[in-house]
Amino acid sequence: MNTLDFSIVAQSWPYLWSGLVFSLSLTAAAFAIGMVLGTCLALVQHFEVPVLAQVVRGYVAVIRSIPLILVLFWFFFLVPIVLGYLSGNGRPVPIGATFTAFITFGLFEAAYYSEIIRVGLRAVNKGQFEACQALALSTYDTYRHIVLPQVLRVASPIILSQTIILFQDTSLVYVLSLTDLLGAASKLAQLNGRLVEMYLVVALAYLAISSAASQCVAILRKRYALATSR
């Protein structure tokens, strides 16, 4: 057993920091894309839009049934082809791993968020819809101002838990050789041979961020439970 030398970590701090920033931006972007798209997917299913609802169900089921790494491989392969097809000249458009990662995580998380929102939509009390009808609110206003806010409120702890999992899952961009927090540590480790120190520090960083976030979710949950019990 070699003695541990964490000074190496201090030296490589800027590089690790940029990796962490990448991990967090990927999380934030995937959250934003995933929530917007996920809400749309949930509404498509909720309103039973013909054909589209079936397609969306299939998409969500497939995404949720296969490993994220395989999804990353799929998108890495498919996105350039699809973009080429869309751009009209039919030739694949090379877009790079970073862009692929953003698109993949956004679309992947959309499937998970949509499922949370879809179940949340079903949980809304029927009386709320009846009250909206009685007030002559349009369907759009009903959902925009009454239903969705309630769904997001009820589902917020689960959505946040899912986001913490998302943050951890961003480490899988390692398979695309990107420089996220883990990727940065891994590249440094290969250069300086300090695997043990690098991976331990990365593990601690993830642990600190995720458990701090989990504590916030727990507080939110408690506060929500109080608010509903009154």
Binding site: I164, D169, S171, L172, S186, V202, A203, S214
Partner: peptide, 12 residues
């Protein structure tokens, strides 16, 4: 065990 990504645990 819940707050460290699986991939990182794999490396550990």
């Amino acid at each position: 065990f819940r707050n460290i990504p699986v991939l990182v645990q794999m490396f550990l």
